[in-house]
Nucleic acid binder design. Structure first.
Lengths: 143, 143
DNA sequence: GTTTAATCAGACAAAATAATCTGATTAAAG
DNA sequence: CTTTAATCAGATTATTTTGTCTGATTAAAC
């Protein structure tokens, strides 16, 4: 069981952080990303392809090709990756799965979950990819 | 996509809350629970069976049989249902799926997620089933 | 004791998610 | 221009999750 994102999304977050932490380098092949992060190569490749369509990363075909961050990493937030892969429905769904859970018809956890959800959203929007660089490098070097 | 629990767990939480909110009545058949909560009957039946094995609810076979809360609802917390169905791994896994994510080798979100996780745990442990009774009745009456 | 309405058990089916395979295309480098 | 190393596209497989079906068992009520 994953915590709150799909496996695809977890991998996507890891991979994009990896690319952002290595902006200084050229395009990075899917094989390297897969190897460093222990993700199946074809799977991470697919995920990065889809993020290319979303405009978050670039891809370059052919020899010495690979993937790289598409724009200024100061302008990319983790929420962008989550939105592109899992979507944002988790931020307006009832935590217990009740339908029509809103302020007029709240489930027993509505208020408490509401606070948590707001903080979870902040967690994904407060910092940009550039600000995660060092932490990512430290984590990746210990995998 | 569910928010943070599996569908099975969401249904389990809803169903147990329903039973707890109707403790005054006799055993409640799976069919009623399924109908009120719009959950497939056989599915909720399976879920309630498994919670019977976990000792959270009782079942009675035969005519006028059904399910009921097994013990004092003041002594049951939502976390008990989550633990029985999804397990507690979500409370010690990395939110981004990194391995070995701990204080010595944290992922970029480790600290922020740590706080959230603690609060999510509180959300499931602060109140007992009895305290959810009214809120549940209000919600269920508007489904 | 027969009928009826329920759980229970286990197999089965469908759908979603995760992962793999194959071959085509592309572009750098010799 | 040939080789090589990469993405890309799409089909396929595997696994997990979700949901369904069938029949056996149980117990209340008549």
């Amino acid at each position: 069981m994953t915590v709150m994102f799909s496996k695809k999304c977890e991998y996507g977050l890891q991979a994009v952080l990896y690319l952002a932490a290595h902006m200084d380098r050229d395009a990075i092949p899917a094989e390297e990303v897969a190897g460093k992060l222990s993700i199946p190569k074809e799977f991470v490749s697919k995920i990065l392809q889809s993020l290319t369509e979303s405009g978050i990363i670039n891809s370059r075909k052919g020899k010495s090709g690979g993937f790289s961050i598409a724009k200024d990493p100061k302008k990319i937030k983790l929420i962008d990756i989550v939105a592109a892969i899992d979507g944002l429905s988790m931020f307006n769904s009832c935590v217990m799965g009740f339908p029509n859970c809103d302020v007029n018809n709240p489930c027993p956890l509505h208020d408490k979950w509401g606070e948590l959800r707001t903080k979870a959203y902040s967690m994904l929007t407060d910092e940009n990819l550039d600000q995660f660089r060092e932490k990512t490098l430290r984590k990746v070097s210990n995998l």
